[in-house]
Amino acid sequence: MLDKNGIAKRIAKEIKDGYYVNLGIGIPTLVANYIPEGINVVLQSENGLLGMGPFPFEGEEDPDLINAGKQTITTLPGSAIFDSAMSFGMIRSQKVDLTILGAMEVSENGDIANWKIPGKMVKGMGGAMDLVASAKNIIVAMQHVNKAGESKLLPECTLPLTGIKCIKKVVTELAVLDILPEGGFRLLERAPGVSVDYIKSVTAGKLIIEGEIPEMDV
């Protein structure tokens, strides 16, 4: 079983040289720490920055320079700044190669719910609906089950949707799965020490298992 950093490390392997990548808040943010040596990636922050650098050194924080999580950050050589309309223009026109975000639920046909729980204070969708509606490749980073122990990989989402038929791949602490165009979670890899039967027991949506399932290399 992986911890949060393990999930981030596994997802980092999906990033290819030359990618422009948008990382959501939470586990996705950690992916930046594991981008392999020699792979050139430009991180997009939807508040208007391409080429997001690390956190500033203490004392060098600039209140005018933040990421979409409102954290102080830095630029890098080659960074570019733009307004919010252009930021979502490059997202909508699919210039961003990969979006990585968290989720509360994912369905076997690729629907995602990650912004609202009825009865709880709703903070808003931020840029998530724009990202999932337009991204050409979206990976969800999340825990396999919720705090109540219920599967988050479902036949259909029960929470209000963020987007429909958009998720291609899910990485959890237990498994890597892709979502087939005809529907269903296809098990690709299992986390070290996790059995296929266990993954079966915590996946409520249709699970497709073809042949031997290799252990993740993390």
Partner: peptide
């Protein structure tokens, strides 16, 4: 110019 999430790294 208040900072909402002050995040830094150590030298």
């Amino acid at each position: 110019k208040r900072i909402e999430q002050r995040t830094v790294r150590t030298r």
